[in-house]
């Protein structure tokens, strides 16, 4: 089977969205492939939700193109069997029961009625199927949203910030679900503003900042390239240790307070060298810069709302984005 005939591709080409002066999404091109979880990462306001809305045909792109299996979204006759999406939390009428909410979606796509019961079972909402969704907790709401996404048993699943506001058990459930969906050969495209969350689920990474593509890489590559590993050494014989390391061809740098950082070195090697020369060590610890830091470095210039640490600058307006705000443009 050739690559082009593989079902479940989302292809973006020069996708751009402008709201007046402001460019929300800027010339975005990448492809989301089946069989893996693709993380869509970016700080708040980076344009993740806008991009997802354009994929789903809700927003018209100012320029560029996005296709699902080679088709525009509006060309899909029964879209729920192609692509299931979890949009904002609780995007439904609170007075309607979970069952009826899913039923009206199933009917619009000619999906058999029995699927409603099946997906309710899958997400564990069978017991409250006839209850009004108004009383649902955040976690139950997310589960209902995921039930709607799974309704058509689609090849592509798209989740916008699925773990926001969930308890640890709910987060674990969603992670496991996403991985198992990808393992079945489906395309899973999930957005997040947390690198740590992506590191646990995503195999491929698309990073955007201020609407621009910053990285489109495998997670393994991203980690290899961005997480610097080093050995942290503290010793009362700092100068002598530096000499010893230098002679052995190991590069070490001082980082203040008597601490040495040995880039790319092995702790065992440093320890053995010190022992051979009878040098006391107070600390010898392998370190790895967090992915979160790598992500922050990558997106530093493109973060829209910085929290200033200095006292000189006035605090920025409280632009903290709530879950789903991106979807609820007035």
């Amino acid at each position: 089977m050739s690559r082009s005939s593989v079902a479940g591709m989302i292809e973006l080409e020069g996708l751009t969205k402008r709201y007046g002066e402001k460019v929300a999404v800027n010339n975005l091109s990448f492809t989301v492939r089946p069989g893996i979880v693709t993380g869509f990462l970016g700080p708040n306001g980076a344009g993740k939700s806008t991009t997802m809305r354009m994929i789903l045909g809700l927003d018209h792109p100012t320029a560029g193109d996005v296709r699902i299996d080679g088709k525009h979204y509006h060309q899909l006759k029964d879209p729920l069997t192609y692509i299931g999406a979890l949009l904002e939390a609780k995007a439904w009428h609170g007075g309607r029961s979970a069952y009826n909410h899913l039923l009206c979606l199933a009917q619009s796509n000619g999906i058999p009625r029995r699927r409603v019961g099946e997906v309710l079972e899958t997400v564990g909402l069978t017991a409250v199927a006839k209850k009004k969704t108004k009383g649902f907790s955040m976690g139950m709401g997310q589960r209902l949203g995921i039930a709607a996404a799974l309704l058509g048993d689609p090849r592509i699943l798209m989740f916008d910030e699925p773990v926001n506001g969930l308890d640890p058990e709910g987060i674990h459930w969603i992670r496991t679900l996403m991985k198992s969906l990808a393992a079945q050969g489906r395309t899973v495209f999930v957005s997040s503003h947390l690198m740590s969350e992506m590191a646990l689920t995503a195999e491929h990474l698309v990073v955007i900042g201020q609407g621009r593509l910053l990285a489109d890489t495998s997670m393994a590559d991203f980690i290899a390239r961005n997480s610097r590993s080093y050995v942290r050494v503290r010793s009362p014989h700092r100068e002598r240790l530096l000499d010893v390391l230098h002679q052995a061809g190991v590069v070490a740098v001082e980082s203040g307070e008597g601490v040495l950082e040995v880039d790319g070195g092995k702790a065992e090697h440093v320890g053995e060298l010190a022992a051979q020369h009878g040098l006391t060590l107070h600390e010898l610890s392998p370190q790895q810069a967090s992915l979160e830091e790598a992500f922050m470095r990558l997106t530093a210039e493109s973060v829209e709302y910085h929290a200033h640490s200095g006292t000189s600058a006035a605090p920025p307006p409280p632009q903290q984005q709530q879950w789903g705000d991106g979807w609820k443009r007035g």
């Binding site: 479940g8 069997t81 090849r155 050969g185 646990l200 195999e203 967090s290």
Partner: peptide, 30 residues
């Protein structure tokens, strides 16, 4: 120490993609 906690997915195939998922639900022209 984030990377320590992320070993599971590395075993998955990185370059060869599976042939995609096929649903048992019939395709309908609505």
């Amino acid at each position: 120490q984030m990377p320590q906690a992320a070993p599971t997915w590395q075993a998955a195939p990185g370059t060869s993609f599976p042939s995609g998922y096929t649903s048992p639900i019939p395709v309908v022209r609505t």
